[in-house]
Nucleic acid binder design. Sequence first.
DNA 1: GTGAAAGCGCTAACAT
DNA 2: ATGTTAGCGCTTTCAC
Lengths: 344, 344
Amino acid sequence: MAVTINDIAKAAGVSRTTVSRVLNDSGYVKKETREKILKSIQQLNYTPSAIARSLSTNKTNTIGVIIPEINNSFFGEIIKGISQVADEHNLNLILFNTDDSKAKELKALKLLKEQRIQGIMITLTYPEDGVNSEYLNTLKNLDIPVVLIDGHVECSNFSGVFIDHSKGAYDGTIALIKEGHKKIAIITGSINSRPAKNRLNGYKKALAANNIPINEEYIFYGDYKHENAYEITKKILDMKDRPTAIFAMSNMMVLGCMKALYEENIVVPDDMAIIGFDKIEALNIIGMNISFINGPTIEMGRTGMKLLIDNLKNKKETRELKRITLLPELVLKGSEKYIGKNKV
Amino acid sequence: MAVTINDIAKAAGVSRTTVSRVLNDSGYVKKETREKILKSIQQLNYTPSAIARSLSTNKTNTIGVIIPEINNSFFGEIIKGISQVADEHNLNLILFNTDDSKAKELKALKLLKEQRIQGIMITLTYPEDGVNSEYLNTLKNLDIPVVLIDGHVECSNFSGVFIDHSKGAYDGTIALIKEGHKKIAIITGSINSRPAKNRLNGYKKALAANNIPINEEYIFYGDYKHENAYEITKKILDMKDRPTAIFAMSNMMVLGCMKALYEENIVVPDDMAIIGFDKIEALNIIGMNISFINGPTIEMGRTGMKLLIDNLKNKKETRELKRITLLPELVLKGSEKYIGKNKV
DNA sequence: GTGAAAGCGCTAACAT
DNA sequence: ATGTTAGCGCTTTCAC
């Protein structure tokens, strides 16, 4: 890693200023001089130091990305989107995976500040205790733009990209209602998370809009996990006034439901309609067609990154708070159908 | 981002050297001085610049990670492992997702060189054309340690962590043989990829070890994708001398098989045994128990990172080529069973 | 068109 | 126990 701009200057018989000019395509350089320099660069296999450049220009062209669960393909897709746009703009990504730990998240934030990154994309880890978002705020005040990516926590004072969970749940519920369902059970995610609240809201709105009374007995509070949904589904099946459809707020919970239904020999949708949140690729491939509401993950990453880049262009003073909400897509596969048999 | 070490020095009435000393816990500093400095750091909310430090120390404490498919949880888990160990050693990760593009991969390599990273962890994208591994070699010669993470390509001149695909396939095949299967079909992944070759090898070895002749008609060349496996399975079901078991070389292909079996009302394992590579969480949860060979992904990330860190400690001259092979785990769920009914 | 010089924020001898 | 000085590799005025 020894060869520096000085070596090139020496080799080409010019000053390092001139070398810098050809490196950055700035200012005039005589054609022959440029070629001489380029040749030396080639011969010595020189690569300029981004570190030195950063120090000098006070720009790192690096974005910090903090997410809670890198091994969850939901976040993998978000990062994929982020990465695509970053690539187009020649920005590097420093990644932190917090494993849902607030402590790691805070540490990441501090390390990113050390690294003098230009901006931060973050999905805040649940539950929010205020400390980390406070630190985020100090970063923002330090002129580091922050873009939130959906997630369980919503800090209204940051720019961000979000999914319209309420609309998603609304659409899903409407789809069930249209099929003739009136007794629709819902299994929520952790109810103090933002998505779960919003989704429950959408569900209620859809019922209200169709003059279907909200039956609290049909609202089951889960935690996004499949074990829980399994137990709840068992209970649902035992209800005297049994629902004809289940709306589960996560793909994992759909799986839990399926397990319970499977064990009790309940056929979907003949004996029970079902609809969930988020894709389950495996089931689709083998032909178990479960309808679901799909969040635009890659798009969220892309949109978020673009938002951040826009922010980068403006000075702190003119930087405006911008929150973009993307609509999830309703993907109907037939599991919502109201088949005669399930008119219990 | 204005406050620097000089501001602290001024505020505390000392030289920046002394400040640097307390920052790095190096050399002696009088207790009172230290406290005065720490106080100033707090008051001014100072965070040292990693950039400036890197330039000065010629160390970035940053590792470059290049993987082909961030949205595949296989790689997500690898990164999770990498990230855990990096965190323990206070190393930052610069991530590049290549989307299986050789061009992006090369670009990433060059950007990492600019960033003066300390080392590289990479899963080379398939297919290998030689250019990128050549560039990797120049980096290695530049004293940047490189650790390969499994993948389709194997460059024998780099350190790396690999899965023993041959052993995995061997174990899986043996499990089927033990159950009494003799007619075992195998659907390979892209046969010029390293894992597919090795897995086919393991399959053959297992048969040979049990004096079961290798029937070329039972070897189907696939591409890791489910569509392909679906078609192949249809063919398998039509064979005059129909196999009693299918060994599929990827989880996606298992799904393709399942779809075909499902459509033809073939019950697993009663009418057809099946075993695959890599976990399919969704199926397990709902109770469709498919046996599989599981690669230790997180562990691979961890081991690879540790290997890299070991390399970092040594000078180029003493750096030794070290290749670690991890054993995959055979997870039996019952789908491998030889049930009377499937003796076609 | 090209070069000299200063400076980015830090660390690391070397003094004292 | 603390300060002085030089230097890391680059960019950026400002001269010429």
